[in-house]
Simulated scan of single mutants.
Amino acid sequence: MRTAYEIVKGHYDANDRRDMDGMLADIAADCRWTEMDGFPCAGTYVGPQEIFKNVFVALGEQFDGYTFTLERLLDAGDDVIAIGDYTATHKKTGKPFRARVVHVWGVAGDKIRRFEQFTDTLRVSEAMR
């Protein structure tokens, strides 16, 4: 059985390859995925299909080159903490941004069960205005 760290690292490895199927592969059907209040796709979404539509598709519709760059991945047993940066350019304004971000993951039974994002929503909002 893979560790929580290995499962989350696999998600980020798939992200680096731009492999959406790989990114969604270990997300449980009941996973609660929370994007921070003030973020363009703020809310809590349950399951891979809702996450895909309300997060990944939504960000792709609003931004060009949306990227998460992982700086550190911290192993806390069944929880994993990722620290990094978001970068993108807003399609309508043409303004780029860079925002620090922390992702908090919860893994159980070899599946991702929880995700919560903490980011500098001001930087994203400034690019959208």
Score class of each variant (00 low, 15 high):
residue 3 T to S: 15
residue 3 T to G: 10
residue 4 A to M: 05
residue 5 Y to S: 00
residue 6 E to T: 01
residue 12 Y to N: 13
residue 13 D to R: 07
residue 14 A to K: 00
residue 15 N to V: 09
residue 20 M to T: 13
residue 21 D to P: 06
residue 21 D to F: 02
residue 22 G to A: 01
residue 23 M to H: 01
residue 24 L to K: 10
residue 27 I to Q: 02
residue 30 D to H: 06
residue 32 R to N: 11
residue 34 T to C: 03
residue 36 M to C: 13
residue 38 G to S: 12
residue 39 F to H: 12
residue 41 C to V: 14
residue 43 G to Q: 10
residue 46 V to E: 14
residue 53 K to S: 13
residue 54 N to I: 01
residue 56 F to W: 14
residue 57 V to E: 08
residue 61 E to H: 09
residue 63 F to K: 04
residue 65 G to R: 03
residue 65 G to A: 06
residue 66 Y to L: 08
residue 70 L to H: 01
residue 75 D to H: 11
residue 79 D to S: 15
residue 81 I to E: 07
residue 85 D to Y: 15
residue 87 T to F: 02
residue 88 A to G: 09
residue 89 T to I: 09
residue 90 H to F: 08
residue 90 H to A: 10
residue 95 K to A: 14
residue 98 R to T: 15
residue 99 A to I: 09
residue 99 A to C: 09
residue 101 V to E: 13
residue 101 V to M: 10
residue 105 W to R: 11
residue 106 G to L: 08
residue 109 G to R: 11
residue 109 G to K: 12
residue 111 K to P: 00
residue 113 R to D: 06
residue 113 R to S: 12
residue 115 F to H: 08
residue 117 Q to R: 05
residue 120 D to E: 11
residue 123 R to K: 15
residue 123 R to N: 14
residue 125 S to H: 14
residue 127 A to D: 10
residue 129 R to V: 13
